[in-house]
Design a protein around this nucleic acid. Structure first.
Lengths: 338, 338
DNA sequence: TTCAGTTCCGCAAAGCTTTGCGGAAAGCTT
DNA sequence: AAGCTTTCCGCAAAGCTTTGCGGAACTGAA
């Protein structure tokens, strides 16, 4: 096994100059004569020299690594956001290390530990749904470790955050249902403590109020954001003496669960029940019927989050909350009035 | 900003011993007296010491990083495999750096370059669909850089690989169609040079032969693995004077594209046309009608790939191809005989 | 010729860890 | 009491890069 990488030392030895000379020549330091500079640069490119990031890291105390923690890796929402983060990171010469909390509070804390041990320069986090205690985030702040959060956020007065305008999105959905002639609009929410649950709930209520519809607590269900639990929630709704004629779920997985339960009950979408979800473009078109949905600009969301991260890294900001607008794309699943 | 991490030096200074003593004490070297050992360990845990991976990397010439290159990040197939790889990597104390080729040959080469610059210890790769020239992989082999491939593989005599038994899977599909009473079975393939295209094709042909059905070249279509191009391929098939009554696609995205085109043509699945795909469990149930499909054990595939990687890293093997079995799950999309 | 000023380059330290080797102090033997 | 073995610990180098500082050699002027 031959040596993998050439070092400055190798180049220096071959040219019979010192390591410092090689280093300086490569970065056009004025102390180095034109002749030597050329020789060094030539050999360096010939030998395919590239500085050892480990050594640089040691020296500069910077690893150029960002840690990302998401609730799961396999949901399109997160992978798309990660994709966006990565593109910005690459532009800055950083790379990302991805970790999944699997929606577990314990794993979230472990992930933070591990990433810090790996000497990431900072963290980009989307909270697990189990996380109610935020003291582990507080610790990060006290240790002055750059943290940025997205979607499911907390401590926004101290942590920069990127979120979608959930309140507005929910209102749009309710109004859309109303316009289509639906009267009993149900909402399947997630864990109460999550900001997305709260905001989508308040938007739901505001929307109902706006449309002069009354709030029926029966029509507000809750689930743990899984496909299965969304199905169960929908089943409960369908068993009501006065069931809903429209429903929307807090995220895409939930929306699909709702659809599944409705179909299994033998009901038609959108004739019997209208459905709207918070989903991504691709899946909305793949399911049947095509799902009316509020689409997050996920890739853009990832990019914005990363940009905020680098601002925080340079200490240009300490906190700042970016609210992205969503778009309601009308498809068949809520087309009652057709 | 206080200092982020304590080093051996910090501990040594505080205890008035040398750095070497601290280092040895922490790893239970016999040269260190019980008393000193205890003191050191106590302070270390109190100060939350963890060795600097950069320094270790420099010393051991090992970064404990694996580079992964996939065609894209947002497809469930890949994210699930990555998830599997990551779990094994974690068990070995390694972490992964993920890079996407976006199905581009150029980006694939760039990704390799960048990951090597980041000093990953090896690479796990799924080829982009554009990649026909494999010289960049040959170079890796010559440089003795551990490489393992999965799904879309090449040079399997020199590179360990994990693949699904595509040939068998295709045969299963054809036989299933045949059993259900479908007679004109079409296949939408991908780029010819890909192993998955070839194997699924040969399985298709073998299956037809097995069922004593004749091969009609008209029923063999090709696409570039995108949703849109699969739709187009399906449209071409539907325009045939004698169109197919069954079709299967090379992967999940393609399968969804086929379904979309069929629905848009106003045809019923499975009555007019039966559809089967290569997909994952989740999406198969979400689409409508639920899609009969050959499911890859993606998570397991990721784990196996990673295990092979570590074998290769320890030079226990130089090449070895692992073939995983697939499972045909029958759902509505191909249930003609009901 | 001699001194000042350039020009060009090398030494060494810092960042952190591991480990072979050498050495001081203590205990033991004879 | 002198010499030998243990016991316990520190020095220093290696892995790679950057950079302040010192210094050699050379140019030009007086």
């Amino acid at each position: 096994m031959s040596k993998r990488h050439v070092s400055l030392k190798d180049l220096a030895k071959e040219l019979n100059v010192s390591i410092s000379t090689v280093s300086r020549a490569l970065k056009d330091h004025p102390d180095i004569s034109e002749e030597v500079r050329q020789k060094v640069k030539h050999l360096a490119s010939e030998r395919n020299y590239s500085p050892n990031p480990l050594a640089m890291g040691l020296l500069k105390q910077a690893t150029r690594m960002i840690g990302i923690i998401v609730p799961d890796l396999v949901t399109h929402f997160y992978s798309s956001i990660i994709s966006g983060i990565e593109s910005v990171a690459k532009e800055h010469g950083y790379f990302v290390v991805i970790s999944s909390s699997n929606e577990s509070y314990i794993k979230e804390k472990e992930s933070i530990e591990n990433l810090l041990k790996s000497r990431v320069e900072g963290l980009i986090i989307c909270m697990s749904q189990e996380t109610t205690d935020t003291s582990h985030f507080e610790k990060l702040i006290q240790a002055d470790i750059p943290v940025v959060m997205f979607d499911r956020v907390c401590l926004t007065d101290k942590i920069p955050a990127v979120i979608a305008d959930s309140n507005d999105a929910s209102q749009k959905i309710v109004r859309h249902f109303h316009d289509q002639g639906y009267n009993r609009i149900a909402y399947v929410s997630g864990p109460e403590h999550l900001n997305i649950s709260k905001e989508r709930m308040s938007g739901y209520l505001a929307g109902l109020n706006d449309c002069r519809m009354t709030v029926d607590p029966d029509l507000i269900e809750q689930c743990d954001l899984s496909f299965e639990s969304a199905q169960l929630a929908m089943k409960r709704l369908l068993k009501l003496p006065n069931p809903p004629d429209a429903v929307f779920g807090i995220n895409d997985t939930v929306a699909f669960g709702l659809m599944k339960a409705i179909k299994e009950a033998g009901l038609q979408i959108p004739e019997d029940i209208g459905v709207v979800g918070f989903t991504d473009e691709f899946h909305s078109t793949v399911v049947d019927p095509p799902l009316t949905s509020v689409t997050h600009p996920t890739y853009e969301m990832g990019r914005k989050t990363a940009e905020l991260f680098f601002k925080r890294l340079k200490s240009e900001i300490t906190s700042e909350t970016l609210v992205l607008q969503t778009k309601l794309v009308e498809r068949e699943s809520s087309a009652k009035s057709r």
